[in-house]
Computed example of a mutant assay.
Amino acid sequence: MDEFHLLEPKLSMATSLGMIKLLKNLCRVCIMTATLTDDYIQFIKKELDFEVVSIKDFPDDIKRINSLKPAIGKFIKKSISVIIDKKINIHDILSNHKNKTIVICNRVETAQNIYSELENNKSKETTLLCIHSRYFDTDRKNKELQISEYFGKHSSLKDVILVSTQVIEAGMDISCDTMHSEISPINSLLQRAGRCARFENEYGDIFIYDVLNLEDREKIAIDSEDTNDKKEIQKLNNKYLPYSKELCENSLKELSKYSFIDEKNALELVNLVLKEEENHRIDCITSKLYNLEKIKDSWNDCNMSHYRETIRDIQSIEIVLIDLENYENKRIIPWMYETVSVYKWSFISWAKQVEENKIDPDDWIYAQVVYGDDSVFDFEWQEKNLTYLQRLPFEK
Rank of each mutant, 00 (worst) to 15 (best):
D2M: 10
L6A: 06
S12M: 04
N25S: 14
R28Y: 10
T33E: 09
T35F: 05
T37L: 00
D38Y: 09
I62C: 09
I62D: 09
K77S: 01
S81H: 11
K86S: 04
D92L: 08
H97K: 08
N106P: 03
A111D: 01
N113W: 06
T126A: 08
L129V: 04
S133M: 06
Y135M: 15
E144P: 01
K158C: 12
K158P: 04
V163M: 07
Q166K: 15
C176E: 04
T178P: 05
H180E: 12
E182F: 04
I186L: 06
A197Q: 03
I206E: 02
I208D: 05
L214V: 02
T227S: 14
I233S: 02
N238S: 13
E254H: 11
K275T: 08
N279P: 00
N279S: 10
I282M: 13
T286C: 05
K288L: 13
L289V: 05
N300Y: 07
M304E: 08
E309N: 07
I311A: 12
Q315G: 10
I317D: 08
K330S: 12
I332Y: 01
P334V: 11
M336V: 01
Y337M: 08
K344E: 12
S346E: 14
F347R: 08
K352S: 15
Q353C: 08
V354W: 10
P361H: 07
D362R: 13
G372A: 15
S375Q: 06
V376F: 07
E380Y: 08
K384P: 03
